[in-house]
Design a binder for these strands. Structure first.
Lengths: 359, 359
DNA sequence: TTGAAAGCGCTAACAC
DNA sequence: GTGTTAGCGCTTTCAA
């Protein structure tokens, strides 16, 4: 019964306010928006009428039909939220997006590519959209959105028509990390990859798997390493988390039965800092010291409460800036301005988790 | 120039599809929605016309005006996203909300109480709203939303008219933790509190501060402890993070100059697991062992990659369920059903971070 | 089974 | 400065 309260008290309309104030609806509208010439006196009368009726301002639904804009920017995330936001790098990026869109008066609609939410991508009232680290079904999603004539921006996705790309030098940066290890004298390395396909499963990296992979970021980072080390022990993690990194680390370190087997990699490149921390943990649990017995490199450069005493050697990417650029790009598209496709560069940070391999 | 592409190709309308198919708009509408009797043949004709025009389906903006529903549920977060989502407990809750709303075909609009985004709360096209851990300006926000006749659900907020409450036994659970410590024999304890006011600042807990506090969760948890220990060393953290916990832990442990001062608390209750982990870290850095020299209790029961060897003694709260309940409640309100206000219960988990105080 | 008409609430043009 | 008119694109009566 209580719930009917909302039904009993219909929202007053601009028209009703105008009527009470004794002015035309268009005048009342102007009085509210301040977008045209209205006499002080009329304005006051309208505002008084609005107050009396407890009018909350123009109905956003009607406004958005009339104006052809809803003030909403969609953000499509591949995973379930709890998977995506477990990694601070994604949150940082989202925060960057929110910075830009928020100050332009737009709000963010969170959408995932998973199951039920899929249909919403086709039908939510949005003015533009940002695709984040999407992969598997990216092209399907893009096709739907293209049909909706929706301005699209994708962060770290493969090039697609009608989609503005915000890039990161994943390949080059990873090559940098690999070269760093090579220069230290490492010859046998392992790589812990971000998920390659969706749904996320863990397992040893194989050529076939890599060939069918859809995760653009992971692929580029793998290619970067391969440019330096033709061969390496690859293992695909089930996500970007310390746990997943730990599991992957164990797999790589124990691939030959014992960590003392001489074929064991002396260095591991992890595709995210969380994964790297997991690898370090796995190594320590197996009695290996970092960087004495094993060098570890990460990727992202998040400020890592969890790294303990280690200062992770990693590639610092400008996550917030990436988000900002994406936000700015959609807004530009909406404003009819030519948006700028930006490519960001990661910076190598030499920490204390890499060293020359032990004899 | 490129950006004008979207302007040149206007979205086709249902009317244009209908015209091409040689039927009335209303019939075309039915053919799409399947919500009425349409002959197979007509339907096919309409679909063919739609395909030819590359029609992407009804415009959501027009739909939402006509139907009075936008299919959007707002979620108001107090902090900047990166602060709120740094704590996995919040992400879990959001995930619970998304579960429910997503499968009902609604999407989530993310709003913050901070600066620019504030105005959006007053003007975004939403059907209902969920307030999450909001505090400071809760009442202002609620007033605006009430005027909009917006169904409101609040998670762990103080009781307010027209707002359905989803609660957690913060007070009772905290009392449980305190009693646990009392039973172990602790007499001098410290409490690391979640932020009390906004913007978040850290500092020693004072009676005045507590009196003007707006963070409902923090207050309840403090009250729970006070029911058991009339006095304790309180310190308010600047957020729910390991770093903030570490800083707060240091403050409390060094309040009397040295950790060896006999007035030093022998146990610390932290209002979140992240804070607790930070406290443990601070203790260890100061040469104290946990639980030997210091007992630590957390709150939340997140699965903690970062706890290292410790199995944190904590209160496990059903975060995802809390989110689900909130989601279900808004949806019920929208469906005209009486929503159920739910109160959740936390479960005490005895880990290995609490023990009898050392002599 | 289909069509015609009305209007959701607002605002941009245009007249006065 | 203010009022009038005309829709934005869709869906829901109601009548045929």
């Amino acid at each position: 019964m209580d719930s009917e309260a909302s039904e009993k008290a219909p929202r007053p309309t601009l028209a009703s306010v105008a009527a009470l104030a004794g002015v035309s609806p268009s005048t009342a509208s102007l009085a509210f928006s301040g977008a045209g010439p209205v006499s002080e006196e009329t304005k006051e009368r309208v505002l008084a009428a609005a107050a009396k009726l407890d009018y909350a301002g123009p109905d956003p639904r009607a406004q958005s039909l009339r104006r052809g804009r809803s003030g909403i920017i969609g953000v499509v995330i591949e995973d379930r939220l709890r998977d995506a936001f477990r990694d601070p790098i994604n949150v940082a990026m989202l925060d960057g997006i929110a910075d830009e869109t928020g100050s332009a008066g737009a709000s963010l609609l969170l959408l995932t590519e998973t199951g039920d939410d899929r249909a919403n991508i086709a039908s939510a009232p949005m003015d533009g959209i940002i695709l984040v680290g999407c992969s598997t079904s990216l092209e399907e999603v893009v096709a739907v959105l293209r049909q909706r004539r929706m301005p699209m921006v994708a962060i770290e996705a493969k090039e697609l028509d009608d989609v503005l790309a915000i890039g990161l030098d994943n390949r080059e940066a990873s090559a940098l990390a690999a070269r760093h290890l090579a220069e230290l004298g490492h010859e046998r390395i392992g790589v812990v990859s971000l998920p390659l396909t969706s749904p996320h499963v863990a397992g040893p990296l194989t050529a076939e798997w890599e060939a069918t992979a859809t995760g653009s970021t992971a692929i580029q980072r793998l290619l970067g390493v391969r440019g330096v080390f033709a061969e390496f022990e690859g293992f695909v993690a089930a996500g970007s988390s310390i746990d997943a990194g730990r599991a992957a680390g164990r797999e790589i370190l124990l691939r030959f039965g014992s960590v003392h087997d001489e074929r064991r990699p002396t260095a591991i490149i992890a595709q995210s800092d969380l994964l790297a921390i997991g690898v370090i943990r796995a190594a320590e649990e197996l009695g290996l010291s970092v960087p004495g017995d094993l060098s570890v490199v990460g990727f992202d450069g998040i400020r890592i409460d969890e790294a303990g005493p280690h200062d992770l050697t990693t590639l610092v990417q400008p996550a917030v800036e990436k988000g900002r650029a994406a936000g700015r790009a959609v807004l530009d598209m909406l404003a009819g301005k030519a948006p700028t496709a930006v490519d960001f560069t990661s910076v190598f940070h030499q920490g204390n988790t890499t060293a020359v391999p032990s004899a």
